[in-house]
Every structure is written in C-alpha cells, then in structure tokens.
Computed example of a mutant assay.
Amino acid sequence: MLFTISALLVAFVVSISTIKILLPLAPQIGLVDLPNARKKHDGAIPLIGGISIYTGVLIASTLFIDQSKLLNLYFISSALLVFIGTMDDIYDLKVAPRMIFQGIVATIMVFGAGIYIHDFGNLFATGPVELGNFGMIFTMLACVAAINAFNMIDGIDGLAGSMSIVTISSVAILTVLNDNSADILLPLILVVAIIPYLFYNVSTRNPRGKKIFMGDAGSMFMGLTVIWLLALSTQTTELSEAAFRPVTALWIIAIPLMDMFAIMIRRIRKGDSPFKADNGHLHHICMRLGLSSRQSLWAISALAISFALVGILGEIFMVAEWILLSLYLVAFITYSYAIQHAWKFIRALK
C-alpha cells in the first residue's frame, strides 16, 4: 500500500510541478490558445496540460513500475504524440502530418509491442469472432480512431480529462474485479496525474486564477493511452489473460467513440471533410440548450459514467455479449439520430 501511495504522490507532485514550471514559459514559445470565432475564452491560455500529465506518468512509472519492452514502447509512442501535438498547438498543423504520426504510433503499438485486437469475443452467440492477422489492421485503425475521438471531444473545460478518467478508472475497476490487482498501478498513476490539470482547468479554487488547457498533445496522449489499455485488457495472450470482454470496452469509451462517429457521419452526409471542425458536438448542443460549460461537463460526465456502469455491471453479471452489443448499437443509433437532428429539437424547445 505504501508503495502505491508513493507512486501516486510522485505522479501528482511531478504533474503539478511541471504546470508551475511551464506556466510562465508557454506564452514565450507560443504554446497558448488564442480566442477566435469558435473558441470563446478570455485571453491566451497555456496549452500545457498534456505535457504535465505525460511527465507525471513517465516519471512515476519509471520509478515504480518494472521496466519492460511493452512499457518502454508505450512511452516512446506517447512521446511522439505529445511532440506532434505540441507542434500542432504551436503551429496549427494540417491534418496530414498529424495522421502520419498517428499512423507511426499505431504501427509501433501493433508491430513493435505486438498489441492487437484479434478476438472480438462471442458477439453473436455462435462462438468467438476471431480476426486473425486482419486484427493488426483493425487495431491500427482503432488506434487512430481513439486518438482522434479524444482529440475531438476536447471542446469544453475538463471534458477530455473527465472522459479519460471515466475510461481509465473503469479499466482499473474491471482489472481488480478480475483479481488482477498487480496491473492497476499504471491506470491509477494516469488518473492521479490528470488531477492537477483538472484543478488548473476547471476548479474555481485555483488560488492564483491561472487556467490551462490540455491541448492536442494531451488529448491525443489520452486517446493512445485508452486504446493501449483496452487492447491489453480485452485480449488473452501468452503472457496474460484478458481482464474483461471486448464488448465491455465499447461501453467504457462510449461517449468519445459515439460522438466522433456521429459527427463524422453528419459531416460526410453534408459533403464536408470528416475532419472539418464545427459546432455540432454533444457539448455544443448542451450549451445551445442553455446549459453552462460547467453544467454541460457534469451532464456529459454523468452520461459517460452511466454507459461505463452498464459495461461494468454487464461484466459482473456476465450478461451475454450479443445482448450488450445490441444495447450498444441501439444507444449509438439513438445518439447519432439525436446529434443529426439536434437543431430541430433545440428550435422546438425554444
């Protein structure tokens, strides 16, 4: 217990110290978010949350988690994303270089670390759905999708951080329920390293009134971390047993995944690029309905927790996978329909 507490304390202290060090430096190197037509905030906000989270996790993991090829490749992949995300935060890069780096990271994950989703589980009550080598391609696509899902969801204060905590905490809970508590230190370190960022991003008790954003560096790092943990936790390999079933992963990452696909479908139907920024995300709709940014954060977080609880309870009571998949598809179709027709609902309510 003392060992775990020490690891979490180091993650917290390093994360908050990194914020304090970078706060005065960020404006000097252009690592700030300026308000524009889409970004309604006051002044230049330092984009250092992601760097602080990564630094806290890196230092704590190096000191308290046994080093392995798997862990080293995770941090190398994360460093690449934090780097390109930081460059994007400073120079506002085009889609192409970001996608190239995401593809490189996905390649490292699959072919370097050997992590890929090869078994979907008994989704149709006819036996395990095995992907074989196609699972490598699928996992690379899933990796890029998860990275962009968390990047897209980062639209209001605290949202990407909260979604990350919901998913990572769910992984930790499911791991413990599977009597595999030895593997929860990294998820716990991740959650604790996010807390200082949330304090500076959301808390009204921030004594000096300093505010920071996660930035693309942070949201992409969170997306990679989530898909890395989910792929490890849902697949049985020669080295480890799966902690929970693949269909459960859909529930604990539900909001970022649903929001990304619903928005991309809507953009494609309108003839726009699926990566074109707009004001059609769930948080935008909540605010159009009259909720404040903070109220929207609480509402969306509550919805994400509700979805995660469905997955966790489904795992505890071993609900048939085809039932969980069917319920998820119903939830996604409902969510997508609501997103597509949100403006009609808003006009009717007003």
Score class of each variant (00 low, 15 high):
Ala304Ser: 14
Glu315Ser: 14
Ala299Tyr: 00
Val319Pro: 04
Ser292Glu: 09
Thr334Glu: 01
Ser293Pro: 04
Trp322Arg: 09
Gln295Glu: 14
Ile305Arg: 03
Ala304Glu: 01
Trp322His: 13
Cys286Met: 15
Gly290Ala: 10
Gly311Arg: 01
Leu309Arg: 07
Leu329Thr: 10
Tyr328Lys: 03
Gln295Cys: 07
Tyr328Asn: 12
Ser293Phe: 04
Leu329Trp: 01
Val330Trp: 04
Met287Gln: 15
Leu303Gln: 06
Ser292Phe: 03
Met318Tyr: 05
Thr334Ser: 15
Met318Phe: 01
Val330Ala: 15
Ser326Lys: 02
Ser306Thr: 10
Leu329Gln: 08
Cys286Asp: 10
Leu309Pro: 05
Leu327Glu: 06
Ala308Ile: 00
Ile316Ser: 15
Cys286Asn: 12
Glu321His: 09
Gly311Ala: 10
Gly290Ile: 02
Ala304Gln: 05
Leu289Cys: 13
Leu303Ser: 12
Ile300Met: 11
Val310Asn: 03
Leu324Tyr: 02
Ile312Val: 14
Leu309Met: 14
Val310Phe: 01
Ala299Gln: 06
Ile333Lys: 10
Leu325Val: 03
Ser301Phe: 03
Arg288Ala: 15
Trp298Met: 13
Leu325Asp: 05
Val330Asp: 12
Ile323Lys: 09
Leu309Lys: 06
Ile316Met: 15
Val310Gln: 03
Val319Lys: 05
Glu321Lys: 10
Ser292Ile: 12
Leu313Pro: 04
Leu297Glu: 10
Gly290Trp: 02
Arg294Ile: 13
Ser292Lys: 09
Leu291Arg: 13
Met287Gly: 09
Ser306Gln: 06
Ala320Met: 08
Trp322Ile: 07
Ala299Asn: 06
Leu297Lys: 11
Leu313Ser: 12
Ser293Lys: 10
Leu329Asp: 08
Gly311His: 02
Leu297Gln: 10
Leu324Pro: 00
Leu325Ile: 03
Gly290Cys: 11
Tyr328Ser: 05
Glu315Pro: 05
Leu297Asp: 13
Val330Met: 13
Trp298Tyr: 11
Glu321Pro: 01
Ile305Pro: 01
Ala308Cys: 08
Trp298His: 11
Gly290Tyr: 06
Ser292Asp: 11
Gly290Arg: 06
Ile323Arg: 08
Phe307Thr: 04
Ser296Thr: 12
Ala302Val: 04
Ala320Ile: 02
Leu324Ala: 09
Gly311Gln: 06
Leu327Arg: 03
Leu289Thr: 07
Ala331Trp: 00
Ile305Thr: 11
Leu313Asp: 04
Ala299Leu: 15
Leu291Phe: 11
Ser296Asp: 13
Ala299Pro: 01
Ala302Asn: 09
Ile333Tyr: 05
Val330Pro: 03
Arg294Asp: 10
Leu309Gly: 08
Gln295Asp: 11
Phe317Asn: 14
Ser326Gln: 05
Leu325His: 02
Glu321Ala: 14
Gly314Arg: 07
Leu324Asn: 06
Glu321Tyr: 01
Phe332Lys: 03
Ile300Trp: 06
Gln295Ser: 13
Tyr328Met: 11
Val319Leu: 10
Ile316Glu: 15
Ser296Ile: 07
Val319His: 05
Leu327Ala: 09
Ala299Glu: 08
Gly314Gln: 07
Val319Asn: 07
Leu297Val: 03
Gln295Ala: 15
Tyr328Thr: 05
Val310Gly: 02
Leu325Thr: 05
Thr334Cys: 11
